[in-house]
């Protein structure tokens, strides 16, 4: 994985010998999952991300918000303007005040932010036994391991090892730091019906929603990498030229 190769590079340079310790808790190492966006030239698998959006919308969105995204952002996933408008209009968005000074609800528009499932954190806690379902907008950037971690978490529900008592209302997950997580195993086989006929296994849904959330957190990723390749090629040529000029200039000096 890219991150690992950079770590190796950094270590050899000896500059970042102590590069940031990613808080891992005591959870076991997160397995590397193969995603379309891995590596330097990776891009988002649009079909997978669209399916992931469906999983988010039909499963995750009951508790988790995506407040930094707008419906219009879905255009990036390959949806048409009409599809985005249709999706947005399924949600009732709070607006106002109107001429009578009252807040009112109206169908969503593409420019609206994703509607959060709860009006505020207190309401979210009240509805979830005191646990706060975190907003997922930048989730892959906010967890060590990123999308790998999300996938591992969503597929990491197992029976607790002998001797471990799981607290009331909690669930055992081998990848969650501390292992006891308030979120239950929400993905079940065929929980959603994919329009493209893909079989909705737990693994498939977890993979798709991880791809979707990676895109949600880093929508600029493809553009960033494409630009980066161009700039580095440019700089490499410029470095060669500059070095040649430097050698020419210094050619008549003994040093």
């Amino acid at each position: 994985m890219l991150r690992m190769s950079f770590k190796a590079l950094a270590l050899t340079l000896g500059i970042f010998a102590a590069a940031p310790a990613h808080a891992a808790g005591e959870a076991i190492p997160i397995p590397d999952r193969k995603f379309s966006f891995d590596g330097i030239f990776g891009t988002y698998d649009r079909a997978s991300a669209q399916r992931g959006f469906q999983v988010y919308k039909e499963v995750c969105a009951a508790c988790h918000g995506l407040r930094l995204l707008s419906y219009r952002n879905l255009r990036d996933l390959g949806l048409t303007e009409a599809q985005v408008a249709a999706i947005a209009s399924q949600f009732e968005i709070k607006d106002g005040p109107n001429d009578e000074g009252q807040m009112f609800e109206r169908p969503g528009r593409p420019a609206d932010r994703f509607r959060s499932p709860f009006p505020n954190d207190a309401a979210a806690r009240a509805a979830n036994n005191g646990a706060l379902p975190p907003d997922l907008s930048v989730m892959t950037k906010a967890r060590a391991g990123g999308a790998d971690y999300l996938f591992a978490l969503l597929t990491g529900y197992v029976d607790p090892p002998p001797g471990v008592t799981v607290m009331d209302g909690m669930h055992y997950n081998k990848y969650f730091p501390g292992n006891q997580i308030a979120m239950g195993p929400v993905l079940n086989p065929d929980q959603v019906e994919y329009a493209d006929g893909t079989k909705a296994t737990v693994e498939q849904m977890a993979h798709d929603v991880s791809t979707f959330l990676q895109w949600a957190a880093e929508p600029e990723l493809e553009q960033r990498r494409a630009l980066g390749v161009k700039i580095i090629i440019f700089l490499t040529i410029l470095a060669g030229l500059t070095y040649a000029v430097k050698r020419k200039i210094w050619a008549d000096v003994e040093h």
């Binding site: 030229l241 500059t242 000029v245 020419k248 050619a251």
Partner: peptide, 26 residues
């Protein structure tokens, strides 16, 4: 480089020009 010395000057200028143009674009 030693052999190129007689015509070194024009080549150096051309090299500088190209490098300068590249840098200016950057």
């Amino acid at each position: 480089t030693a052999h190129a010395a007689p015509d070194g000057a024009p080549r150096r200028d051309f090299l500088k020009l190209v490098t300068g143009a590249f840098a200016a674009v950057g």
